[in-house]
């Protein structure tokens, strides 16, 4: 079901403040020393008193909460997300190192699942009630029920372990020092299964939405006009009905991005793909809280920005909306 509210800047501001507040308050509301909650027990054992004092000063932990919040925000604007103890590097650097792989997988899956979802939705809606339509509907709704990590595991076992035609883990063959075409092929081979898992898991959203709008659009009077004009079936299907059915899917892109990103967190873990998901998992294992917080902040904010961009673009895509104002 589509939740269409007119979202504005205020909505995004509230969401942004909530994300910041959650990141700021969670470690400070935990029982015990906030420094422990921020950095985890393991990190503190290795800390010298001098370093501890420096960290207290840095987070303004000896000052009232609102001043701590000021220090936190100021650090964020400097691009300072904190220090990761398990990686012994700035959190921002650690995340930026993993980000390209996640962008690659998430971007490819989002584009593939959107296009496939729209095309299947148009074809299915066009043939509504037929056997093909019913099979597609039941099939895709079932696929929708498979959690991305289970799909990933099944693909891994079938194509990686049983058939042995896909690499089991990683994003590159280690120590192979490939270049040029061979390198691209290697990257593609490694990303095939994670991308397939994410694409299949997120196909149904766009499909169901397109199919539903398609069914409504097909009943519109202009469809009859198009038919009466003697236009070919494909022109009617894609240019007249399809174009209208795409709009709801595009408005959902922001929300879908959030889902695919969250899915990637799990799928990367299954394939040991060295992106942000794998990073999050390692951080969870070693209780490297600054990294977990950094990942959450970056991912959540990118999803917000994407949603906002779609909201801004929407009137341009659908002239009816801009004329309505």
């Amino acid at each position: 079901m589509l939740v269409t509210g007119k979202r504005n800047l205020l909505t995004y501001t509230i969401a942004f403040v909530f994300i910041l507040a959650l990141n700021f308050l969670l470690p400070r509301m935990m029982p015990g020393d906030p420094l422990t909650a921020i950095y985890g027990d393991e990190a503190l054992v290795a800390m010298t008193p001098a370093l501890k004092a420096r960290l207290v000063a840095r987070f303004a932990l000896d000052q009232p909460l609102w001043r701590q919040f000021g220090a936190y925000i100021a650090a964020l604007f400097r691009g300072d997300l904190g220090w990761s103890y398990s990686f012994n590097a700035p959190v921002l650097k650690v995340i930026l190192g993993a980000l390209p792989w996640t962008l690659l997988v998430v971007g490819t899956s989002l584009i593939l699942s959107t296009i496939l979802g729209i095309v299947l939705g148009i074809e299915s809606g066009w043939r509504r009630g037929s056997k093909i339509d019913r099979a597609m509907l039941a099939g895709l709704m079932s696929l929708n029920g498979f959690p991305d990590f289970f799909l990933g595991l099944v693909l891994l076992v079938v194509f990686g372990v049983l058939l042995g035609i896909a690499p089991l883990s990683g994003a590159l063959t280690p120590y192979s020092s490939l270049s040029g075409q061979a390198l691209i092929l290697d990257v593609l081979k490694h990303m095939a299964l994670p991308v397939a898992a994410l694409t299949i898991a997120h196909l149904a959203g766009g499909y169901l939405l397109t199919r539903n709008t398609m069914i409504t659009v097909l009943k519109a009077p202009f469809m009859l006009t198009a038919k009466a004009k003697g236009l070919s079936q494909n022109v009617i299907k894609y240019r007249h009905a399809g174009r209208n059915s795409m709009l709801p899917v595009l408005t959902m892109t922001g929300i879908s991005l959030g889902r695919v990103v969250a899915g990637a967190l799990f799928v990367e873990l299954v394939f040991a793909y060295p992106g942000v998901g794998q990073l999050t998992y390692q951080a969870l294992l070693s209780r490297d809280y600054p990294v977990i917080q950094g990942v959450f902040l970056m991912m959540a904010v990118s999803v917000l920005v994407a949603n906002f961009a779609v909201d801004l673009l929407y009137p341009k895509l659908d002239p009816r909306v801009s004329h309505a104002h």
Binding site: V3, G5, R7, T11, Y12, I14, A15, F18, I19, L22, N23, L26, G254, I255, G258, R259, V261, A262, L265, T280, I292, Q293, F296, M299, A300, V303, L304, N307
Partner: peptide
């Protein structure tokens, strides 16, 4: 505001 924040990420954090 809550609808645009990916819920599962909040849950993980």
């Amino acid at each position: 505001a809550f609808i645009v924040i990916p819920m599962i990420m909040v849950a993980i954090l």
